[in-house]
Design a protein around this nucleic acid. Structure first.
Lengths: 148, 148
DNA sequence: GATGAGATCAAGAATCATTCTAATTCAAAA
DNA sequence: TTTTGAATTAGAATGATTCTTGATCTCATC
C-alpha cells in the first residue's frame, strides 16, 4: 500500500517514505554531522534526541533513508560503514592514521574508460573512489614527532 | 632474528619471508586463480593441495604474503576481502550482479588533485578505485531476460 | 647429531558489525 | 472504530576475521 503519492521516476530523490519520528531523528543527526559517523555513532547521537531508539531501528532507518536517496553509505576497506547526508556529487578522503573522513568536491568529471582498459563488454555504473592519505592534523602531528 | 638477508628497502617486493609449505601452497593457489577468491575460497583450494591446512593458517599466510608484497588484498564495500596475485599496477572492475571481479590495466596515471578538491593540507597516499558495473555475462543475461 | 629460541601452525574461542526473527506498536484507509 | 500492512524493538543469529594458546618446526650454534 502506497502511503503517499509515488515519486516521479525521473527524479533522483524519491520522496514516498513515511517520515516516522525515528527516521527524522536519524536523518537530522546525519544532517548535523560532518564526520561521517558509523551506525553505532549515529545510534548514540540519536539517543540524545530520542532515548528509546534502538540500534536495530537505527539500522532500519539508515537502510530506508539510503533506499530513498536521502543519505549515502560510505565504505572504506572493511571498516564499519559510515553515513553521509551530503548528496552533492563528491568522493571521500580517508585518513589512514586517524580514520577521519572528509568530503572532496569534483573539479571535473572522471571518465574511467580514459584511464583504465576495462574488460570487453563491461557496462560501467559508477566508479567507487576513496582517496587515502593523511589529514592535515595527522601531517602536523607526525612533523612534531619527527622533529623531536 | 633475521632468517635471511634483509631485502633492499628500495625494492617493492621484500623477500625476507620464510617460505613454508603452507605459504607456498597459498601463494600458488592465488597465482593460479584469476577470480580473486575470498579467504574461505583460498582455504578450500589450498586443501586440495594440502589437506591438513587450516583456515587460521590460510589467514596467517595471506597476512604474511600481503605484508611482504607478494599478493594484494582487494576490498569492495564490506564484502569479504578478496586476494590477488597480480602485482602490476591495476584497479578492479566489480560486477554488481554476480560479484565477479576483474582486473583493469591503467592507460595513464590518474592525478586525483586534477579531479577533486582535497581539503587543505592533506597528503595523498593513493587513490583506492573500484569500478562498478555489469560484467559481459550479466549484460547478456539481462538482455535475454528483457527480450522475452 | 643435539639443543634452544623464536617463528609458524592449528583448533577453537572471541569479537564485532550487521542481519534476522518474532512480538508489539503504530498509522492510515476503510 | 476496525483492519491491515508497515515500523519498531530486543535479542538471537550470522559470518568474516582476529585472538589465544599450546604444539610443532627451523635454523644457528654447540
Amino acid at each position: 500500500m502506497k502511503l503517499q503519492a509515488p515519486s516521479h521516476e525521473e527524479h533522483a530523490m524519491p520522496v514516498d517514505l513515511r517520515m516516522t519520528p525515528q527516521r527524522s531523528v536519524v536523518h537530522e543527526v546525519l544532517r548535523s554531522s560532518f564526520d561521517h559517523p558509523t551506525a553505532t555513532e549515529v545510534f548514540l547521537r540519536s539517543k540524545d534526541r530520542m532515548s528509546t531508539i534502538s540500534l536495530a531501528t537505527v539500522y532500519n532507518c539508515l537502510d530506508a533513508l539510503i533506499e530513498h536517496g536521502l543519505i549515502r553509505q560510505v565504505n572504506v576497506d572493511r571498516d564499519s560503514s559510515r553515513f553521509c547526508a551530503n548528496l552533492n556529487d563528491h568522493v571521500h578522503f580517508h585518513c589512514e592514521q586517524c580514520g577521519v573522513m572528509m568530503d572532496a568536491d569534483p573539479i571535473e568529471k572522471l571518465d574511467v574508460t580514459k584511464f583504465w582498459k576495462l574488460p570487453q563488454g563491461c557496462q560501467v555504473t559508477e566508479p567507487a573512489i576513496a582517496i587515502r592519505g593523511l589529514c592535515p592534523t595527522c601531517v602536523d602531528k607526525n612533523q612534531k614527532v619527527a622533529s623531536r
